[in-house]
């Protein structure tokens, strides 16, 4: 039986153009929807830092509500064509991958919460995890208290 073949005008051009664009756009732009290199997990952090924050009664508060949570656990920020980050920008958090300690930012994030909820102070515990001897372990820890400036005005 004879094999039917088609040769419509523009068909070959479309096939080549589609193949080229879907190959090149993700390589050049990483993410420009619908072109995507599916870059999730395409980074290699060595540590991550998180914060555990509790109130005077010992109640543990949600770090994301306080603005000290770890954002974007699996999508590395875009870094192509002058773009850095994502479509929208979350407020900077002191928690993250391979970050330095930032007590000033932690205090700036927690202070509004303390004032709003009339809490005297918060106990902050910063935990940095890394891999030591082949296993995940807490490699560094920092603890301090953030006082409500309304209750304890700065001198």
């Amino acid at each position: 039986m004879e094999t039917l073949r088609s040769d419509k005008k523009g068909e070959v051009f479309f096939v080549r153009a589609f193949a080229a664009v879907t190959l090149l756009m993700p390589l050049l732009a990483t993410e420009l929807y619908p072109f995507s290199a599916a870059s999730m997990f395409a980074h290699s952090p060595k540590t991550y830092t998180v914060y555990r924050v509790s109130g005077p009664t010992g109640e543990v508060w949600d770090p994301h509500l306080l603005g000290v949570g770890l954002n974007n656990p699996h999508d590395p920020p875009l870094n192509s064509w002058g773009r850095r980050g994502y479509g929208r920008r979350l407020p900077a958090s002191p928690a993250g991958y391979d970050v330095d300690w930032d007590e000033t930012l932690v205090k700036a994030r927690i202070q509004p919460f303390l004032k709003k909820h009339a809490q005297a102070y918060a106990v902050v515990e910063g935990l940095r995890y890394g891999v030591k001897d082949g296993a995940v372990t807490c490699v560094e820890r920092r603890s301090y208290t953030v006082r409500n400036e309304r209750f304890y005005p700065k001198r």
Binding site: E31, L32, Y33, P34, F35, L78, R83, R84, G85, Y86, G87, R88, R89, L90
Partner: peptide, 10 residues
């Protein structure tokens, strides 16, 4: 949230 980058062709 504040706009950061354009991430789509559209």
């Amino acid at each position: 949230l504040p706009k950061a980058n354009t991430v789509s062709v559209l």
